[in-house]
Simulated assay, not measured.
Amino acid sequence: MWKWLIKLASPQRFYEFSGKLIPWFNWSFLILCVAGLYYGLIVAPMDYQQGDSYRIMFVHVPAAWMSMFIYIVMAIAGGVGLIWRTKLSEIIAASSAPIGASFAFLALVTGSLWGKPMWGTWWIWDGRLTSELILFFLYIGVIALNNAIEDPRNAARASAVLALVGVVNIPIIHYSVEWWNTLHQGTTVMKMSGPSIHIDMLIPLLLMAVAFKLYYAAVLMMSARTELLERERNSSWVQEVISTARS
């Protein structure tokens, strides 16, 4: 297994392997996303307190989960690149940042849309909302560092340090509803005693969560492949890829 992972870390092997996986991820994402939205928007019952307005949850909650998950992946990849100087790790970290920022932004926007009918306001400096906003700014900081420093290896080291420092915000987001008095709804899925959400609502929620992960994997691989071609443009295997594409 370890030898296989080392081989996969080779830019050429990753490029070839990811090219085969991307169509599978794309189609799986599309199928699960359609199924999740259908069950969430049509099949799932109306909430007895929130009515139909709660249905934005099927986008908001998976987006929030993904914003944290991608940040952890980005930080780990950045740390690996910082320690072992592996080019692929640096590329994965850099490619993850815009995707993670998009999910964080989506979580903030949908949360605001959900909060207006529930709380009577678009925004409140709630512990979870504020820490999620900080997460979005951390993503923007990583993206800015990657774009501001001309040398990609130096940019990767600087952004990795920021990403690793920002990891402390992840448990703050998760436990904020327990640590502080908050209007935000508490945890209903990831509980030691089991989910407290109705099964008809839980199924589409999980379908959307898996769909978003597949979307992330597909977009990450497409972005990483493009960056690999740019960084390795003078290598023989890239020249071979270009010749094959032209023929």
Rank of each mutant, 00 (worst) to 15 (best):
G78L: 07
F58I: 02
Y39K: 13
M68S: 12
S67K: 13
V73K: 11
I92W: 01
N26A: 12
P45R: 00
L82F: 09
V61N: 09
V43R: 03
G51H: 03
I42A: 10
M68E: 15
Y54P: 07
R85I: 00
W84A: 07
A104K: 06
L88G: 02
L106K: 08
A35R: 09
L41A: 01
T86M: 09
L129F: 15
G79N: 00
L82N: 11
V73I: 15
F103H: 12
A35L: 14
Q50D: 01
I31N: 08
P45W: 03
I72F: 15
W122H: 04
L113N: 05
M66P: 05
R85V: 05
S95R: 14
T110M: 11
D47Q: 01
Y48E: 10
Y54C: 02
D126V: 05
I124V: 15
I56N: 05
N26M: 08
A44V: 05
S96G: 07
F105M: 13
A77S: 14
M68K: 13
D52A: 10
I76P: 00
G36H: 10
L113H: 05
L106A: 14
C33A: 07
T130Q: 10
G115C: 06
A104P: 06
G120Y: 06
A97R: 07
A77V: 13
R55W: 02
C33E: 01
A94T: 04
G100F: 08
V43G: 01
L88S: 14
F103V: 04
S67G: 11
G111W: 00
D126K: 07
P117V: 08
W125P: 11
S102Y: 07
L133S: 15
A97S: 14
A101V: 09
W114H: 04
S95L: 03
G79V: 11
Y54W: 03
S89K: 00
A101M: 14
P62T: 02
Y39R: 02
F29H: 13
V34S: 09
A63S: 04
C33L: 01
L88E: 01
Y71T: 01
W119A: 01
H60W: 09
P62S: 02
I42T: 03
Q50L: 09
L88Q: 11
A104H: 00
P62H: 00
F105R: 00
I31C: 10
L108Q: 12
W114D: 06
A64H: 05
G79W: 00
T110K: 11
G40D: 02
W65E: 11
V73R: 08
M118E: 14
G100P: 08
P98C: 10
I134T: 15
L41W: 03
G40M: 10
K87W: 09
Y48L: 04
L82C: 11
M118N: 07
G81E: 04
W122D: 08
S28G: 14
D47W: 02
G81F: 09
S67V: 03
I83Q: 12
V109S: 10
G51Q: 03
R85G: 12
G36E: 05
A35M: 00
V43T: 03
A64G: 02
V61M: 10
G78T: 08
T86K: 13
A77P: 00
I83P: 06
G78N: 09
R128W: 12
A101T: 13
A101I: 04
V61R: 11
